[in-house]
């Protein structure tokens, strides 16, 4: 297992290099001049423009620019934005906000989704099961942008239950955005759990458990739930990686200064160094949490071994 993890971690290095180069190339290919965009309506003196272009290597060809960027990486220099702010500082500033949002979203997704899925799966085709099916279909089919605005308007503005925007009220401010962000995955977790449990209820080993004279609780918790949760837990694990990449729509609607907002602003301002730094980090999170999921799989299911 240790060797497997080490090999997988080593494999992330070429992936990250390739990903960062691709992102670099895409930012390079963007139309428009970032310095002009920075200047806005006020024309800059040609000397200043030339100096800025030289400072950010904007006149070099793509490969040279990328080479200089990677050279900086070796001593943890991720470059700066056009206001001389180090990218590393932007990340350490914004990441905790996104981490908090992710924690809230994943907790909601796991708790509500699992509970709904378990009860729906145990009494398949019952009243509660149908309720779960209809409500999850509804949630999945509504675009997150609509969901965000509607919940902000109804729950935040009309009823005043939640802060409308910002993060001034600590963890409480993350609750509504977290719920909106989690909604799709929550519905998916509920359905996945339901299907998985319903399937396992008919498994031969559950019949064996009954024939052994085990109490009903033991049959459900030990012999049905445990096996059913394997796919669900792995889905949630992978979802953590995706959520840590920041939620551009949710963070924008609820004015949450997370990593998703930062990358959105950076793309609009053609801040190459910022975009590359953050997106590469997102890629890393995604890979890392997928690795955790794979390891978790082997822990949960003894049939899977990576030796």
């Amino acid at each position: 297992m240790g060797r497997y993890v080490a090999r997988r971690l080593l494999l992330t290095i070429p992936v990250l290099i390739g990903a960062s180069f691709l992102i670099f190339a895409m930012v390079y290919a963007l139309p428009g001049d970032p310095i002009r965009a920075l200047a806005g309506d006020r024309p800059l003196a040609p000397a200043v423009v030339a100096q800025l272009r030289a400072q950010f290597n904007l006149d070099d060809p793509l490969v040279i620019q990328y080479g200089k960027y990677v050279a900086g990486l070796t001593h943890l220099d991720l470059g700066t934005d056009f206001h001389q702010r180090p990218v590393l500082e932007i990340i350490t500033d914004r990441l905790p906000v996104t981490v908090k949002l992710t924690v809230v979203a994943v907790l909601l997704e796991a708790s509500i989704g699992l509970v709904a899925g378990v009860f729906a799966g145990i009494r398949r085709n019952g009243y509660f099961d149908n309720l779960v099916l209809v409500s999850t279909t509804l949630i999945i089919s509504i675009p997150i942008l609509v969901l965000a605005f509607v919940s902000q308007y109804v729950l935040g503005l009309k009823f005043g239950w939640f802060p409308i925007a910002g993060i001034q009220q600590g963890w409480y401010s993350y609750l509504l955005p977290g719920l909106v962000l989690a909604s799709g995955s929550l519905a998916y977790v509920a359905r996945l759990t339901r299907t998985s449990i319903a399937e396992n209820m008919n498994a031969d080993y559950v019949r064996t458990a009954k024939a052994k004279g085990l109490p009903r609780r033991t049959i459900i918790v030990r012999h049905t739930l445990r096996n059913s949760l394997i796919p669900v837990i792995t889905f949630i694990g992978a979802d953590v990686g995706a959520l840590l990449g920041g939620a551009i729509v949710t963070e924008a609607v609820f004015n949450i200064p997370g990593i998703g907002r930062a990358v959105f602003d950076a793309v609009r301002g053609q801040e190459g160094a910022v975009v590359v730094g953050i997106v590469t980090l997102m890629v890393f999170f995604f890979i890392f949490f997928n690795l955790i999921v794979d390891v978790l799989y082997a822990v949960l299911d003894p049939r899977i071994r990576y030796d």
Binding site: A203, D204, Y205, R207, T208, K212, H223, P302
Partner: peptide, 14 residues
Amino acid sequence: AMIFQDALSALNPV
């Protein structure tokens, strides 16, 4: 007590 035909599926894999 009962024993089943296919012990692989009748025993819980985990």
